[in-house]
């Protein structure tokens, strides 16, 4: 597939989590991904979008999440950005089981799951300005199918 790109911006409410991951997955279908690869992308997008809604905006329902997806050859690049409260310590937040939410009901596995599902995950965050997650996946690499 030649280069293609899309941008999606939506209100930071949990109703939009399913819409966001389904829209990104649909955009990537031209690359003929396997069911597992599409599942990986949907899961990673859902994790990042949920982080923005729950932690970035504190479930306030105010603010927008913006997703940019680019496909080039077999590579999918996804950028998920919010203008929420940001993360004080990104490396700490990316550790497994870390959560700033309810420890009884939140797993703290969001970034770990993103890293497991995608080939690359990078996070940039500025306290009080927002967080941007960059993710990359090469479709057809077959890593997960081995």
């Amino acid at each position: 597939m030649c280069e293609n790109k899309m941008t999606l911006s939506f209100l930071a409410v949990s109703e939009n989590e399913s819409f966001a991951r389904s829209a990104v997955a649909a955009f990537c279908l031209g690359l003929n991904p396997t069911i597992e690869e599409i599942g990986d992308i949907k899961t990673a997008v859902s994790e990042a979008v949920t982080n923005s809604i729950v932690h970035g905006y504190g479930n306030s329902g105010k603010g927008f999440v913006t997703i940019t997806v680019a496909v080039n050859g077999e590579t999918v690049t996804i950028k998920i950005a919010d203008e929420g409260k940001g993360i004080d310590d990104v490396s700490k937040a990316m550790q497994p089981f870390f959560t700033s939410g309810d420890i009884e009901e939140r797993s703290g596995m969001g970034f770990t799951v993103m890293q497991a599902m995608m080939d690359e995950v990078n996070v940039e965050s500025q306290p009080k300005s927002g967080t941007t997650v960059f993710m990359k996946k090469i479709i057809g690499s077959g890593v997960r199918d081995a």
Binding site: S18, R21, G39, K42, T43, S46, E47, T50, E104, E105, R106, S107, M109, G110, T112, V113
Partner: peptide, 12 residues
């Protein structure tokens, strides 16, 4: 479909 939110639900 399930993301890591499901882990929290099951562990709870």
């Amino acid at each position: 479909f399930m993301d890591s939110t499901g882990i929290g639900v099951l562990i709870g």
